[in-house]
């Protein structure tokens, strides 16, 4: 237990001192502010555009902006934030393989499972904190300017996207215990998500795949039923748990 605590502290210290925590913090706060800001500014932009549009014979009708637009922005932008997150954290295991820092810890009697548990826990905590910070900021601004109740199933839709992030992190951990370099991790995670997206285009499979969770917009606009998200949530939870669980025995056998 003491060893796990020490390794967790080391992981957090690394996130802080390497500057990654700061970068992620700034990034997610920026995204959080941007979502309502873009929504707020859109009508102005439209007005400015309207003149030139009428010249080419198009009419632009002013549309009233609501909290829905801010949340639509949120679901449009959060994939980029997740990509940035995975890019920044893709080396969390592989950096240690390549420099050999882990070998020393392991030869000191640190159990291998504790390494996986500590790193996965820090990734999850970091994603959870960053994500809800971003969502919280969007929520706050939207509440101030408009009314969040315009968005239907707001809690479910944001939880679904958070769960999708957790699922991607589970893949990140799994590919991290298999690959030697972070390029391998990125290729693995990218490939798996892409495969999921492609499979999602099939009408039957699409209903069950975790990538479905990314479609928060359909929920807030009310074009999708809340019940439709139960199956992908369960599938995501099960596969994420399986990835985390498989990572431990795979890491135990890894030659460092």
């Amino acid at each position: 237990m003491k060893a796990l605590g020490a390794f967790l502290r080391k992981e957090l210290m690394e996130q802080v001192r390497s500057g990654r925590l700061l970068i992620l913090g700034i990034l997610f706060i920026l995204f959080g502010i941007m979502n309502p800001a873009v929504a707020k500014l859109t009508p102005r932009l439209m007005e400015m555009l309207a003149d030139s549009m009428t010249q080419i014979g198009m009419t632009v009708f002013p549309v009233p902006v609501t909290a829905l637009d801010a949340w639509a922005q949120f679901f449009k932008n959060i994939p980029m934030a997740l990509i940035a997150f995975v890019l920044l954290e893709s080396g969390v295991f592989t950096r240690e393989y390549q420099t050999g820092t882990l070998v020393l810890s392991l030869t000191k009697g640190l159990d291998r499972p504790k390494v996986v548990i500590a790193k996965a826990a820090v990734l999850l905590a970091l994603w959870t904190a960053c994500y809800w910070l971003c969502a919280g900021i969007t929520w706050g601004y939207s509440a101030y300017y408009w009314d969040n109740s315009a968005a239907r199933h707001l809690v479910l839709s944001t939880v679904c996207w958070w769960a999708f992030g957790v699922w991607v992190l589970a893949l990140t951990v799994l590919f991290s215990v298999m690959a030697r370099a972070n390029t391998g991790v990125l290729a693995g995670v990218g490939g798996a998500v892409l495969l999921c997206v492609l499979l999602g285009m099939l009408p039957t499979a699409g209903k069950y795949l975790p990538t479905r969770l990314m479609d928060g917009t359909a929920l807030i606009y009310g074009t999708a039923e809340a019940g439709a998200y139960t199956a992908p949530l369960l599938v995501a939870a099960a596969t994420a748990a399986a990835c985390f669980a498989a990572s431990i025995p795979i890491f135990n056998r890894k030659q460092l």
Partner: peptide, 29 residues
């Protein structure tokens, strides 16, 4: 029973020597 010094020792670059030794002491119980 063993203390090991690898051929190219690499330690966590973001720690000080004292912090690193404390970390080592904690993980080795």
């Amino acid at each position: 029973w063993i203390g090991y010094l690898p051929d190219v020792p690499e330690f966590y670059p973001f720690m000080t020597a004292a912090e690193y030794l404390r970390f080592c002491g904690e993980i080795s119980g």
